[in-house]
C-alpha cells in the first residue's frame, strides 16, 4: 500500500532536510517539480506494513504564492491533497515559524507539528508548553532535536497512527 502521501513543510533552515533524510533514509529521489527549476525531493517511509511517500516541499516563510517556491508548496497541498502535512518548526524562532502554521491551518489539511531544535531552545533557556500548543491548535505536536535523532521515533509513532486511520479517511484526494 504505497498510496499515502505525506508532505513536509516549513521555513528554510529549520532542519527540514534532516527530518526528511531521517524518515526516508537513502530511499529518496531528487528531481525537479514539473516544468520548474526547483528541486523536488521525495522518498519512501515504511511504517509497519504500510508505505508512505514523503514529499519535501520547498522551504518557505508563507504560502501566498508570491514566489515560485511558495506557489509549488501551496499548489501541492491544495491540489494533491496529501494525507498529512508535517510542519517542521524551529523552536528558537517559534513565532516567525508559526506564521506558516497559521496558513496551513487555513488549508484544512491534517497537520502534525514538529518542533525542531529543542536542544538549541533549551540552551537559550526557552521553555515551551507542548500540551498547551497541541490543545490550542488541536494537532499532534512532536518535540525534536533532529540533528541528534531525538524525537524521530515519536514522529514515526504519530505518523503510523495516522496511517492506521488512513483507509477509513476516504479523503477523495487526486494523489
Amino acid at each position: 500500500m504505497a498510496d499515502l502521501t505525506i508532505a513536509l513543510a516549513g521555513n528554510p533552515n529549520v532542519g527540514k532536510s534532516t527530518v526528511f533524510n531521517a524518515l526516508t533514509g537513502m530511499r529518496q529521489h531528487v528531481g525537479n517539480w514539473p516544468g520548474k527549476t526547483v528541486e523536488r525531493k521525495e522518498g519512501q517511509l515504511t511504517l509497519g506494513t504500510h508505505t508512505a511517500t514523503i514529499v519535501d516541499l520547498p522551504g518557505t516563510y508563507s504560502l501566498t504564492a508570491r514566489s515560485l517556491e511558495e506557489q509549488i508548496a501551496r499548489d501541492f497541498i491544495i491540489r494533491e491533497r496529501p494525507d498529512a502535512v508535517v510542519n517542521v518548526l524551529d523552536v528558537a524562532n517559534l513565532e516567525r515559524n508559526l506564521y506558516l502554521t497559521a496558513q496551513l491551518l487555513e488549508m484544512e489539511v491534517p497537520l502534525v507539528l514538529v518542533l525542531n531544535m529543542v536542544d538549541v531552545a533549551d540552551a537559550r533557556g526557552l521553555k515551551l508548553d507542548q500540551p498547551a500548543l497541541a490543545a490550542a491548535l488541536g494537532v499532534p505536536v512532536v518535540m525534536m532535536a533532529a540533528s541528534r535523532g531525538q524525537g524521530m521515533d515519536e514522529l514515526k509513532r504519530v505518523l503510523s497512527q495516522l496511517i492506521a486511520s488512513a483507509p477509513a479517511q476516504a479523503r477523495g484526494g487526486i494523489a
Binding site: A84, L105, E108, V109, P110, L137, G138, V139, S165, A168
Partner: peptide, 14 residues
C-alpha cells in the same frame, strides 16, 4: 475516523 479527526486541526485563525 477518530484519529482522522484528531489530526484535522480544530483551531482556525480568526
Amino acid at each position: 475516523m477518530t484519529v482522522a479527526q484528531l489530526t484535522l486541526p480544530t483551531a482556525q485563525v480568526s
